[in-house]
Design a protein around this nucleic acid. Sequence first.
RNA 1: GCGGGUGUAGCUCAGUUGGUUAGAGCGCCAGAUUGUGGCCCUGGAGGUCGUGAGUUCGAUUCUCGUCGCCCGCC
Length: 377
Amino acid sequence: MNNQYFSFELQKVDPETGARAGIFHTPHGDIETPVYMPVGTQATVKGMLPKDLKEIGSQIILSNTYHLYMRPGDELIARAGGLHKFMNWDRPILTDSGGFQVFSLASLNKITDDGVTFSSHVDGSRHTFTPELAMKIQHNLGSDIIMAFDQCSEYGYDHAQARLAMERTGRWLERCYLAHDNEYQALFPIVQGNFYKDLRRESLERCLPFVKHGIAIGGLSVGEPKSLMYEIMDDLQPLLPTDVPRYLMGVGSPDCLVEGVLRGIDMFDCVLATRVARNGTALTSRGKVVVRNGKYKEDFTPLDPDCDCYCCRNYTKAYLRHLVNVGEMTGAMLLSLHNIAYLHKLMRGLRESILGGYVRDYVREFYRLQGDCAHEA
RNA sequence: GCGGGUGUAGCUCAGUUGGUUAGAGCGCCAGAUUGUGGCCCUGGAGGUCGUGAGUUCGAUUCUCGUCGCCCGCC
């Protein structure tokens, strides 16, 4: 499943859990897995400069077809020389197809086999996304990894509804595959099927013929209990292809990252780190720290005693609380920086422990430090 | 000094033709947040209704005194 642009080097698989460590080679550089990808929806990771992302070890970021198509337009970005150049990020970029966004953000008008008609969340204007258009936009953006256009189904869909969405996702995948005509962008199919194991398995079967460089699992972490998500992943794990990276879409709380890695996932993305940062919350080695809370008013210690990021090296909780409280953007920026740095560090730790053969111990220590709200696998 | 106005939550103000547990916004406190609409969302605490007396079955509401503040005049 390699070409001159993409190849996945599986370095080690933990025999007990199936946790994997590898290197994904792409046109814009190598990605050491497992990896967390910060989300830069609108061609920027909110509150972060590329140089800061590099300093904390971001290897690849995610951006978004739907948003960039709306503003400033994918053709404009193509004229600018592509998304990498436009946003000054020379490492790999993965773009989501817009499938999720037309369901979660836009007001839907109609879903047919042809595609999805919806009204923009920006100005209400009407648009239709098809698998072909989703490919064309991502071609214009020039991201390294492009995602298939899928139909998401909500938690709570019955089996029949979930089947329709899953089957349509399969048909759309074939069209994405046919419409995708270059070698320097890797197209990842997306497994759907809601929370029905038979549908998930069938969806995976439908994806396999189109898997070249990677595969994604979508439609999880959409409001269901974590135990249910883990059940679906457990069922899928032995059936997933081993020679390409596996991407679990939208998952990114620290405990979910750990549990995902233990189930053989290689790539994650999540807005959680940057979103909670903007609301004054830090993810730390000692669990969640709601910096806004009054108890930090005179806490002159760093956010996370085990972190050496710029924020933790230089600022106290009392100062961060002050910034958040008065609504200064610097607060959101520093917390975003720390949160992303923390998730990167967590993933590096997992990777090293897999390579070193002690992932179980690493995970045990992770949960011990996280304290109360830790969920056991 | 005279005349007028005003005093209700930390702040800015509603309200009651006299009637059970007096409201809002903001702020504060806490929670939420998972393929991102940064201002969102969900809870909570907090008031002897300036103060003293009177009228009344009952006063934050009416009357009088008093204190504070604002405006005008001298």
